[in-house]
Amino acid sequence: METKDLYGVLGLKRDASKDEIRAAYRKLARKHHPDANPDDPASEVKFKEIQNAYETLSNPEKKRQYDAGPTSYFGQGSPTGGQGGTGGFSEFSDLFGGFGGLGDVFGRQQAQSPQKIRGEDVTVSVNLKFRDALEGVTTRVRATVEDQCMDCGGSGAAPGTTMRSCPDCGGRGTYTRDQGFFALSESCRKCGGEGVYIERPCSSCSGSGRVSRARQVTVRIPAGARDGMKVRVPGRGSAGRKGGPNGDLYVVTHVEEHPLFVRRGDDFVVEVPVSFVEATLGAGIEVPKPGGGRVKLKLPAGTEDGRQFKVRGEGSPSARKGGVRGDLIVRVRVVVPKKVTKREREILEALADERDEDVRQALFEGATDR
């Protein structure tokens, strides 16, 4: 059986004073705080070890139990050796994991453990350029969160003190009132139903265990991010209370509009002008792509204004489908010349005489048939 040396975690000797414990904690907490090491997952594990060590060693009663327990248990002899008949524990409280004695286990109701509360989720926005959203980008966002108070380690109690069993409810969190044939159970007003209360609140956080703090968080925006998409960053929201887990950070993307490309799902739509001659005779044209560069497109003869062509795989990567790309939708706009030369007019008039067609005949026939 092994245990973590809490003094070693803080880099201290076992005879360290209260001020030395606090100073070591603050120094190491700043060094290993996740905000100071955004790209190092191990820093969060180290930070929690430091917090756990400080929570125990800054509390006189917990420190006394820790100093007595590991020494007796891991000292001379085996755990089942003959030291007071308790298998090496210095006192019966060690055997029951820190209870005050038999009275706490049998016969007297313990103060209930405070319910762990998950931290709140935090939502922030980030503005993205069109190309950054298309290709993906790693950026930093500023988020204001409720972070764990470094002075009290999140307990809410002044350094060197601890929570106490509520005197009004005896640590039960509730009290009972007789109502004739009924007994009404209500939450204790003094402790809010938690069974414990803070006698001396921490001056830094006013007993809440948390302080408001602005932090810079690195977030990876996936390729193909859409306007209004939420990117979740686990565990980077507000700190939990009473030992609860942190909330999450949600980053909402706002993508600038492109002057040419309009997004439709994972597809992009672009309007491409073609000349009257190209539309009539057919032609091979080049079309711009959203990410830069060009793609060739074959127009058939007789292409009408507004006709759409699909260029597969030239749209946006899908942020939800593993990068599968959408399509580029090309919408043709036939450009009619506003001015023509004398020679061009003669050619067009000759074409009109040659074709001698009435393109509106079907229109009027349809109108009179109804």
Rank of each mutant, 00 (worst) to 15 (best):
R312G: 04
G313Y: 07
E314N: 11
E314S: 11
E314C: 00
E314Q: 15
G315M: 04
S316D: 14
S316Q: 12
P317M: 10
P317F: 12
P317Y: 00
P317L: 05
P317E: 03
S318E: 02
S318M: 05
A319R: 09
A319G: 02
A319Y: 13
R320V: 11
R320Q: 12
R320Y: 05
R320F: 09
K321R: 15
K321S: 06
G322R: 02
G322E: 08
G322S: 01
G323A: 10
V324S: 03
V324Y: 01
R325Y: 07
R325F: 03
G326C: 08
G326A: 05
G326P: 03
G326T: 00
G326V: 05
L328K: 04
L328Q: 03
I329D: 05
V330E: 09
V330T: 11
R331E: 14
R331D: 02
V332I: 15
V332A: 10
V332D: 07
R333D: 05
R333A: 11
V334G: 00
V334L: 11
V334M: 04
V335E: 09
V335G: 00
V336I: 15
V336F: 10
V336M: 04
V336D: 07
V336H: 11
P337S: 01
P337V: 03
P337T: 08
P337M: 02
K338Y: 02
K338M: 03
K339G: 06
K339R: 14
K339Y: 09
K339N: 02
V340A: 05
T341P: 01
T341L: 04
T341G: 13
K342M: 08
R343N: 13
E344L: 05
R345N: 07
R345Q: 12
R345I: 05
E346N: 10
E346K: 12
I347A: 12
L348A: 15
L348D: 07
E349W: 05
E349A: 13
E349D: 14
E349F: 10
A350N: 10
A350R: 14
A350C: 01
L351F: 08
L351M: 09
A352T: 14
A352Y: 13
